[in-house]
Computed example of a mutant assay.
Amino acid sequence: MPPVLTPAQLRFLRGQAHGLKAMLQVGGKGVSPALVAEVAQALEHHELIKVKVAAADREERDALIAALAAQADAALVQRIGHTAVLYRPSAERRQIVLPRA
């Protein structure tokens, strides 16, 4: 189940993600099991990642991002253009401490 984030936590995570570069790219093949496994591994290691989605229209991009977030069990922090920011706390070693409110 993806983490439920408050507006203050979303704001905090957007600030943390500002300087990040996109780690992964969703291509023409869409959301494959290999891509989901790669995203899950990146989230376990970094907790907060950016993903670029190469889709022509907005509805297709939104659908790919939603599917990727759901399958990777991550929360969608932000989507701007072709870039999405995903967050999932690490099970082993948490690096990002979220504000309470």
Rank of each mutant, 00 (worst) to 15 (best):
H18Y: 15
E47D: 04
L43R: 01
Q9L: 09
K21T: 09
Q41H: 06
V31S: 11
P33R: 05
A22P: 00
A56L: 07
L48R: 08
Q16A: 13
L10E: 11
Q16G: 07
E59F: 14
D62R: 14
K52F: 10
R58I: 06
L13M: 05
F12S: 01
A55D: 06
Q25G: 14
A17H: 04
R58G: 05
H45N: 13
G27V: 01
E44T: 14
Q25V: 15
H45G: 11
R61W: 04
K50W: 00
R14G: 12
K52M: 13
R14I: 00
L13C: 09
A37G: 15
H45S: 07
A40L: 13
A40V: 14
Q41W: 02
R58E: 10
A17K: 05
A54H: 15
A42L: 03
V36G: 03
I49T: 07
F12W: 02
K50E: 02
L35A: 04
H46K: 08
E38K: 14
A17P: 13
R61S: 15
R14D: 14
V53P: 00
S32F: 06
V51G: 02
S32V: 03
L35R: 13
G19V: 07
L20T: 01
G15C: 08
A37P: 01
G30V: 00
A54I: 09
L13P: 13
S32R: 08
Q25P: 04
V31G: 13
R58Q: 11
H46T: 10
A37Y: 13
K29P: 06
S32P: 06
V51H: 02
L24Q: 06
V39D: 04
G19R: 14
G19N: 09
Q16W: 12
F12V: 00
S32G: 06
S32W: 04
E38H: 15
H18R: 12
A55C: 09
V39N: 08
K21G: 12
P33E: 10
P33Y: 08
A22L: 00
V39T: 07
A56R: 12
A17W: 03
L43H: 01
V36R: 03
H18F: 08
L20C: 05
E38G: 09
R61L: 11
Q25W: 03
L20M: 02
D62T: 14
E38T: 12
P7G: 01
A8T: 12
